[in-house]
Design a protein around this nucleic acid. Structure first.
Length: 603
RNA sequence: CGGGGCGUGGCGCAGUUUGGUAGCGCGGGUGCUUUGGGAGCACUAGGUCGCAGGUUCGAAUCCUGUCGCCCCGACCA
């Protein structure tokens, strides 16, 4: 390909709406073009990158015996109603685009394909003899993100590889899950990405075990917690750890302490010389349930700890045996709107009476009371008295009428001890989620009545797994990990081209001739070559080649008359001047050996 | 959804406070010079100032509405 024909439009200035480096570089290099909020066109250079990533993904999936298909993007609502996800995905802050067709039938634009695939396989597969099956597609997905941002990192239309496996038993599912785990490690390492696999919350997809593959990068939206020996790694949403010990409170007879205007843990501690770990703080939340009920929740947690809302939603969902559509703190405005004048914000105790809810007409009239184990373990503590400007000191759970239902609700944080080995300390870093694998179990197959006949001749629901990779996100994450002040440094396995040949001065016949010859020769070698044949000053071409991040550069310039050219690797500072033939040999050898490094390894 | 900010040529911005008929840099075109790290000079094209109303002799500027985009938040009791 010739740069003169490439539709290469690079920008000197960063666009005002780009925040992170990878987004800026993608725009400046002309890789993507914004069409609307969270919606981008992939321009020719980008499409080459995406095709290279896709090829790696396909090779590794195919090697595991997975089958590629292409599923529809328009999904009838009844499938999603059956699986129980229609409401959660469309109502409120649901992320599913949906529309009505001319018959008035509701249709959703696929954000993920469990429903569709489960329906199809349920109809096509009937016997355990046909299992296991692992089926995948590489397809555009649609998600109406609450807040699209960072270019392709969180866009509303994006390319994803999603695979779904079907098994006759859980053991078989676990085996495929492990194989996918292996395939994913190969995919990311072949793509030149440094990733870490972490335990994850399975979120809206549901199911049992799940693992995320994270590209470690400062710009990542997820917080990861990793033990100092690397043996434990989890997304903060899911992470469990051993918190710091509480500092014991002096034992004495319980009493009421006047605490005027001390509504925060911080105020309470500085004014009375308490330690936050000696306090039980009580949080008031409102959960919106799938059946439409609005349920007030009272959560007790140790004062120095923070609540993990994902854990809270999971615990609550299990307890109530239905999905939680939304859960968030109750504000003063909300409680006023419900005419609940008696809630002593800042002074709430675990034993706040249900009677404060008497006036409400849209909420449930009793609290669900939960406690994090850091709070339940305290034997002697301080807490709100349910009366303004008063706290109770040296109180215990008996005096409060017992301990609420206990769960792990706290956020694990850096500095905690690891659960697998308490001598190992947890540290944190940020990550970009590029892959996620789940053991779904029978959640979808049961809901959608997707069955097979097992060895005993009995009808059984499929055991399912699902496995996603954000293809377009991967491309951007690669930049986040591989760039410098000048631009992108693509890993060679996913670079749009492997080498760029720059003719420094196209007016110079000698250079031009030599450049064309070198270009042809490299093409004949089977390399992905780009020839910069533009009538531009050399500096412009150097800047552009650095910006778009081609791994090798070969310059035909002032030494052309003596048959010499300059070569440089994008990842290095130094360049080298060699005879043409030697340069071609060196580069092709290097690229071939790099290709070997990144090519499929035998199982 | 709440708060804040911004919409002026392809991109980055000034002009808006104090109304007087639109400007700078980059980019584009032509010519000459230059030619290994985003060249210089000259000429040139390109904008109903997001959109719709209103106020006014006159609106990018003031008012109302609307659309779009960006950031923060939607947890710290």
């Amino acid at each position: 390909m010739r740069v003169s024909r490439l539709m290469l439009v690079t920008l000197r200035d960063s666009p005002a709406d780009a925040e992170i480096i990878s987004h800026k570089l993608l725009i400046r290099g002309g890789f993507i073009k914004r069409v609307s909020g969270g919606i981008y066109a992939y321009m020719p250079l980008m499409w080459r990158v995406l095709k290279k990533i896709t090829a790696i993904v396909q090779e590794e999936m195919d090697a595991k015996g997975a089958l590629q298909t292409l599923l529809p993007q328009l999904h009838p609502s009844e499938l999603w109603i059956k699986s129980g996800r229609w409401k959660g995905y469309t109502a409120g802050e649901g992320i599913m685009f949906h529309l009505k067709d001319r018959q008035g039938k509701e249709i959703g634009l696929g954000p993920t394909h469990e429903e569709v695939i489960t329906k199809i396989t349920g109809e096509m597969l009937n016997s355990y003899k046909q299992l296991p099956i692992n089926i995948y597609q590489i397809q555009t997905k649609f998600r109406d993100e609450i807040r699209p941002r960072f270019g392709l990192m969180r866009s509303r239309e994006f390319i994803m590889k999603d695979a779904y496996s079907f098994h006759s038993c859980e053991k078989d599912l676990k085996q495929t899950y492990e194989e996918m785990n292996d395939a994913y490690k190969r995919i990311f390492s072949r793509s030149g990405l440094k990733t870490v696999a972490v335990d994850a919350d399975s979120g809206a997809i549901g199911g049992a075990a799940s693992q995320e593959f994270m590209v470690t990068a400062e710009a990542g939206e997820d917080l990861l917690l990793i033990s100092s020996d690397g043996k434990y790694a989890a997304n903060q949403e899911k992470a469990i750890s051993i918190p710091q010990e509480a500092i014991p409170l002096k034992h004495e007879k319980s009493f009421i302490l006047e605490t005027p205007n001390q509504k925060t843990i911080e105020d309470l501690c500085t004014k009375n010389k308490f330690n936050p770990s000696q306090i039980v703080k009580v949080l008031l939340f409102l959960a919106i349930l799938e059946n439409g009920e609005k349920q007030p929740i009272l959560i007790s947690i140790r004062g120095d700890q923070e609540l993990n809302e994902v854990k809270l939603a999971n615990v609550l969902g299990t307890f109530l045996e239905q999905p939680i559509l939304d859960i968030r703190p109750i504000t003063k405005d909300q409680s006023d709107a419900e005419k609940l004048s008696d809630i002593p914000f800042g002074y709430i105790g675990p034993d706040l009476k249900d009677s404060v809810l008497n006036n409400t007409n849209s909420w449930n009239k009793n609290f669900i009371r939960l406690a994090d184990y850091t709070a339940s373990k305290l034997e002697n503590f301080i807490c709100g008295s349910n009366a303004i400007n008063k706290h109770r000191c040296s109180i215990d759970w008996n005096e409060l009428g017992g301990i609420p239902k206990v769960s792990d609700l706290r956020k694990a944080i850096a500095g905690d001890k690891s659960i697998h080995d308490s001598t190992k300390i947890i540290r944190e870093c940020r990550g970009i989620e590029v892959g996620h694998i789940f053991q779904l179990g029978q959640k979808y197959s049961r809901a959608l009545n997707s069955n097979f006949t097992n060895e005993k001749g009995l009808l059984e629901s499929f055991w399912m797994g699902c496995y996603g990779i954000g293809i377009s996100r991967m491309a951007q994450a690669a930049i986040e990990q591989n760039h410098d002040e000048e631009g992108i440094k693509w890993p060679i396995s996913i670079a749009p081209f492997e080498i760029i040949v720059i003719i420094a001065n196209i007016q110079n016949e000698l250079q031009k001739k030599l450049g064309e010859a070198v270009y042809k020769k490299l093409l004949d070698y089977g390399l992905d070559v780009l020839l910069d044949d533009r009538d531009e000053r050399a500096g412009v071409k150097f800047k552009d080649s650095d910006l778009i991040g081609i791994p090798w550069r070969l310059v035909i310039g002032r030494d052309a008359s003596s048959g010499k050219v300059e070569i440089r690797k994008r990842s290095r500072k130094e360049s080298e001047v060699l005879e043409v033939e030697a340069a071609i040999e060196k580069i092709s050898e290097d690229i071939f050996s790099e290709r070997k490094l990144f090519e499929r390894k035998p199982l």
